[in-house]
């Protein structure tokens, strides 16, 4: 990754994360296929909802015949972390048009958010809409394609995890987190490590009472508060 902020550079920077989209997308398509959802439903869901874990939940709840209100509420809760990510990313685009802001927000994912945070450390804390549009659009297209292919292949592959592709997402977050810690010079590494340890412990305790997606949101909020409390005051 370099300091280049062009559309083309965005396409290039997002490539390492695509393995994650492909792995999870194929798995989602296969699950949808075994749940007797059509390719059209899978494509529409990937284009309209565009959210990995939420789509798995939606499929399982559709299969169970859950009320629409319950499915929509679950989706909102799982994706509410997007509010935090959008908020922390938005301040780098204040000077850009509202349309650009809406375009960036509409296709923002965990992965492109994390990628943007890494990129900031290379570019003297600047981002440009075109760079993020490039990264977002390629990720969006690959996600839709992977889920559709998964659905079509559903009858052929019974165990997509056999090849370890499902680990691509975890691996990607390991890489992005590590790179974030070593490149973000605005915070001492010791402080970042403290936040990491704090959030990890919180996750363990919170998952005693909350499913992972909710625990994740609460742990993140607590982690930010903890970070503020222990950082040197000026």
């Amino acid at each position: 990754m370099n300091a280049d902020l062009t559309f083309r550079s965005g396409l290039k920077d997002v490539i390492p994360t695509l393995f994650g989209y492909i792995g999870v997308g194929l798995a989602m398509g296969i699950v949808a296929n075994t749940s007797h959802l059509s390719v059209l439903v899978v494509l529409l869901m990937s284009l309209i909802v565009y959210a990995g874990s939420a789509q798995f939940i939606i499929i399982s709840m559709l299969l169970a015949g859950s009320p629409i209100s319950a499915i929509v509420l679950s989706t909102f809760l799982i994706n509410s972390r997007m509010i935090l990510m959008s908020m922390s990313l938005a301040r780098y685009f204040k000077q850009d048009s509202l349309l650009n802001n809406i375009g960036i927000g509409s296709l923002l994912t965990d992965e492109t958010f994390a990628l943007s945070m890494n990129k900031l450390n290379q570019t003297n804390h600047q981002l440009k809409p075109n760079w993020l549009h490039g990264a977002n659009l390629l990720a969006y297209a690959i996600w839709a394609l992977a889920t559709v292919v998964g659905c079509l292949l559903g009858n052929l592959i019974t165990d997509p995890n056999q090849f370890g592709l499902d680990f691509a997402v975890v691996g990607m977050f390991i890489g992005l987190l590590y790179l974030q810690m070593i490149t973000d010079r605005s915070k001492p590494i010791k402080l970042q490590l403290l936040v990491v340890i704090f959030v990890a412990i919180m996750m363990y305790f919170l998952m005693r009472w909350f499913p992972g997606n909710i625990a994740l949101l609460i742990a993140t909020l607590l982690g930010c508060g903890f970070g503020m409390a222990v950082s040197p005051h000026d």
């Binding site: 972390r81 935090l84 990510m85 908020m87 922390s88 301040r91 965990d110 958010f113 994390a114 945070m117 997402v169 975890v170 977050f173 390991i174 992005l176 987190l177 974030q180 810690m181 973000d184 605005s186 915070k187 970042q192 936040v195 990491v196 959030v199 990890a200 996750m203 363990y204 998952m207 005693r208 499913p211 992972g212 997606n213 625990a215 994740l216 742990a219 993140t220 982690g223 930010c224 508060g225 903890f226 970070g227 503020m228 950082s231």
Partner: peptide
């Protein structure tokens, strides 16, 4: 200041979530 901790906190939380298995009413 608060939001500046979102990246590290949320990436850690996503990573740790993948290392744990939720069992309703029990420790993960």
């Amino acid at each position: 200041n608060f939001l500046s901790f979102v990246p590290v906190a949320i990436m850690t939380a996503i990573f740790i979530e993948s290392l744990l298995v939720y069992h309703a009413g029990h420790w993960p």
